[in-house]
Design a protein around this nucleic acid. Structure first.
Lengths: 240, 240
DNA sequence: CGCCTTAAAGTCATGTCAACCCTTACCCCG
DNA sequence: CGGGGTAAGGGTTGACATGACTTTAAGGCG
């Protein structure tokens, strides 16, 4: 027999089976000398895991897509509006939520800009934490964070994820700082410049950042007609 | 307020919201001169999309994990037992299933060996199709296939996915054939050998494949203490 | 035994990339 | 107004990866 694929008739929710979206939001703080990754956590105000910290999350509504749900939930619980949102993974172990209820969580991964982060959290139940040094979280959220960080660090080089952390325009030094925070190691400025320009991911605006106590760096912006897709492992850079 | 994260109380399935798993299974056929990728499709026997071809799939049961559900569903609808199973993506657009029902599908991506494939399909409603040339499928399954193939081809080089297609031991020529089928282009045997051996992903068994009409090739097997994780962009190959 | 086929190993040119040099530009401060 | 500090931004080198090609090994078969 063929599959009874996606037919609501025979899946009449015999037991509670819920779908929720969970958001792993990232922010970079350029203030502290060592740039580090920060993520917002929410304190649970009811069972299960009352009082423990958890990633922002909430139930999926019927009239919204997964991505919409993630954006809405993040906004509601932390006030943040992500600039970048991407699906990470669906977690669906049977026992990941205690108490016999079954929850499948689709985890999204969001990036927010530093300035945005300032005006967001105003609640005692929301707090920023350093991504690499978290307390024990509710549910399987520690596992989720671990996986998210691993993916982030592996994906860095062939995506423009880093750009989402910054504003419309930025200097190469700022962009490089983001890379260094994510990769947790210094990056050579000269080589970094070459790579970024060669990849055509960014474009010179012609303007410069003034007001510094040194030579004013150029301001760049994202290349609008540049998608991650043509950034495969084989970049045919036949530029001449 | 903090998120009402994953609490079954306030998500009491107001409207039908179901979770299903969908499997994109792949097989390589070494018979035909040009090795090609084949995937099993299932003909739908009821609405919606009755009579159309679709990827194998079915509702998630409450007492099974997502991966278990995918494996079980594939087995039930096609008879196949995958050697490799990995989550691909969760599809959750509001209108992806017609008729007002809301279905979130977690798509898994499975690889099966050629010999296994033989004894599987025995049903008129199950058929193997060439992955790059499919009919119009039910739901958004064409989109799913497109995405799956894109991911497969991009992931090839830094994962051992290809190995799953083959048996316990294999020759380099066999392994290369798999790569060529996936990448759709010829691969230089000599360079391929060098890469594979340098990556330490495979190990020489010491034995050779006899019975050929030419020089007997060495038999290799997977390197058990080799995970994709240490294959990151920074491979510290300080071997001396 | 010679011929065919394919495996397996070696050679060489080219490209890529990190590490490190350097010069240049600009602001600040005296 | 001129010197010093700082970072931009470009150049060079050497290690290493990669691609194209050549050479040798090993077996089957007529």
């Amino acid at each position: 027999m063929a599959a009874q694929l996606e037919q609501p008739t025979d899946i009449s929710t015999d037991v509670a089976l819920a779908v929720s979206t969970v958001i792993f939001a990232l922010r970079i703080d350029p203030k502290t000398g060592l740039t580090t990754l920060w993520i917002p956590l929410v304190k649970r105000i009811r069972e299960p895991h009352e009082g423990q910290w958890a990633l922002p999350g909430g139930p999926l509504h019927c009239e919204e897509s997964l991505a919409d749900s993630a954006a809405r939930t993040l906004k509601r619980s932390t006030g943040l509006t992500p600039k970048y949102l991407e699906q990470l993974y669906a977690f669906g172990a049977v026992d990941r939520s205690p108490g016999g209820s079954r929850v499948v969580s689709v985890v999204y991964w969001a990036l927010v800009q530093s300035d945005e982060a300032e005006r967001a959290v105003s609640d005692d139940n929301v707090e920023w934490h350093v991504a690499d040094d978290l307390p024990t979280l509710a549910f399987d959220h520690n596992t989720i964070v671990e996986y998210a960080l691993w993916r982030l660090r592996n994906k860095m080089e062939y995506s423009r994820v880093a750009h989402a952390f910054l504003g419309e325009t930025f200097t190469l030094a700022q962009l490089r700082e983001v890379y260094e925070a994510v990769l947790r190691k210094p990056v050579d400025p000269a080589n970094f410049r070459r790579q970024m320009l060669a990849s055509r991911a960014i474009v010179d605006t012609g303007r410069r950042l003034t007001g510094t106590s040194h030579r004013p760096p150029r301001l760049y912006r994202y290349n609008s007609d540049f998608t991650m897709a043509d950034q495969g492992p084989l970049t045919p850079t036949r530029s001449h």
